[in-house]
Write a protein that binds this DNA or RNA. Structure first.
Lengths: 333, 333
DNA sequence: TTGTAGGCGTTATCAT
DNA sequence: ATGATAACGCCTACAA
């Protein structure tokens, strides 16, 4: 049994309420009892029960963050940004992973509610717009990433960023451009795919559905996609990948197939995870402003917790980072 | 204000205790009131307060896990393994990051105590043996990774694994082998460095202190180490890196310097993170059995929570995975 | 089978 | 300045 305020009270020969006041620095208490109680508390290694405190205060000063998986490289700065603002505002952060599974995501959300967090941030949600319907039934504010349809969300400008990426390839002279999708990320994938279509159409380049490949946003998925790509009768000269993980998987598979990048095939990713700059060749990609996203997510959630009415979705610009995985298309044989 | 058991009681026209029994499936309750109360609870979107429940039950059924940082690729399976066993045993997992900072680590540990978790797992601790002294002052059991000196720990056999790695290089014919250390990981680093020394001595190869380079376990650290390496009057023909991140940083820097791997320089990592197989060239490395570690960590913590007395440190074997970043040394000029 | 009452560790209100 | 008391939401004897 952990030491409680009552134990201290007994030792100090005062009432429990006095101990509480001493520890919480209440104005109406004598300096000497305060110091004495504090000393005893320290000696007894007292650590206040947040459970009890939260119960009576009706506030846990805690928020919950659902991540896709520990060690999703995309998350680093997002979570750091969240924690930064949270700490500054006196909030604690509870973290749990959804493993990209909708059922598990809902379980986590529900467990956060059970713990009486004040609000929830879901990164890479599988439920997505499903939260729209939950909004009146569920008592906690929920903020999402990359789902601009949802009113409480912080997103990278997927359409514009994806457009930049595809236009970059077209400017280099590519005409046959593949897209490797991510079936596990409905919303972002749709945005990026739509831009892909739009840019090609705007440039009057016919869209070849054979060049749109199913993927899953993982290294292995990128790897597998290359096989599909190479089986096409008219293979592409460039690949736009849903994310960097996919792109790095693609790079690895191309290397094994002895296809040179970018001489024979250009590759573009999305996210700009740390590894992207350390690949071979260093990856051309779209940078998402992850640290900023984290900060904005937390600020938006705080606004909702405080009952602000004027909260609106935020869209942040992405940035095309041109490295060495893209270049001119090969000369036609 | 969230809906409580009292609210349900009012609506159902019964006492709060009856609601409690209905929801917790108590034996002495009529089937019909139970069903009725449950239906009402569902309709009211009742979610029990874990705060209150934990307080009265004197058990949160929760453990805390301190990780170095979200998206440390080493963590994936460790955390998955922990959560697997935790779920199976009815425990929840709280996650928080130390950012490799001792002060922050202690804050997290303390906050877990405040939340009354039943025990704590610290992955990649900065405190390390410091927990030895805390053991009687601190009321929660703490389990560590890769700190076999500490009685409650699960480790990869660092000495034996590192020995394998260095012996592999020597067998290939290397004599000038560098080691890139990690100043942020005292214990594991020391073990690996010691093995490095021992193997060289056993083979009567003089140790050149110039070939032991400071690093920090990051991509950038590996990158920077190469510069130091190249400045040596007699550069090495092989590099043993503290971990894969370092090794991947090294590969990237060598590529920029147009040093071919493995023809001109062999590189060995440690961990076998997922990226290791997708590098160029695919990285020779030591696999840590991370999923198993996670499971064992959780089982050990459970044993301690249950008051078992016979808990002993566990050491699991690592495995050298030979890929394509190691080969014969270049012929002397 | 159901209701009443006490308590988990804390804070806050009201006396003293 | 300090003590007594009630309350937060829940569980669990004990009583009915």
């Amino acid at each position: 049994m952990a030491v409680s305020i009552k134990d201290i009270a007994k030792v100090a020969g005062v009432a429990p309420s006095t101990v509480s006041r001493a520890l919480s620095d209440h104005p109406r208490i004598s300096r000497e009892t305060r110091e004495r109680v504090r000393r005893i508390a320290r000696e007894m290694e007292y650590t206040p029960s947040l459970l009890a405190r939260s119960l009576v205060k009706q506030d846990t000063a805690t928020i919950g963050v659902v991540i896709t998986s520990v060690s999703d490289p995309f998350l680093t700065n997002v979570v750091t940004g969240i924690e930064e603002v949270a700490q500054e505002q006196g909030y604690s952060v509870l973290l749990s992973s959804s493993y990209l599974d909708a059922k598990r995501e809902l379980e986590v959300v529900s467990s956060f509610h059970g713990r009486r967090t004040r609000g929830i941030i879901v990164i890479g949600s599988q439920i997505d717009t499903g939260y729209l319907h939950m909004r009146d039934r569920f008592p906690l504010p929920i903020v999402l990433t990359n789902c601009p349809i949802y009113p409480y969300s912080v997103s990278t400008d997927n359409p514009a960023s994806a457009r930049q990426a595809v236009e970059h390839l077209i400017q280099l002279g590519h005409r046959r451009i593949a897209y490797i999708a991510n079936r596990r990320s409905y919303r972002s994938n749709l945005d990026r795919l739509t831009s892909y279509h739009q840019v090609l159409e705007a440039q009057r380049i016919p869209v070849d559905e054979d060049l749109i490949i199913e993927g899953d946003g993982t290294l292995g998925g990128g790897n597998a996609a290359v096989e599909a790509l190479r089986s096409r009768t008219r293979p592409p000269t460039a690949v736009f990948c849903f994310n960097d993980m996919t792109a790095i998987g693609v790079l690895s598979a191309l290397r094994q197939a002895e296809t040179r990048v970018p001489e024979e095939m250009s590759v573009v990713g999305f996210d700009d995870v740390e590894f992207a700059a350390y690949c071979h060749p260093p990856l051309t990609t779209v940078r998402q402003p992850t640290d900023l996203m984290g900060q904005r997510l937390m600020r938006m959630l705080l606004a909702l917790i405080r009952g602000q009415e004027d909260v609106e979705p935020e869209v942040l610009p992405g940035e095309l980072v041109i490295r060495e995985s893209t270049g001119d298309p090969p000369l036609p044989a």
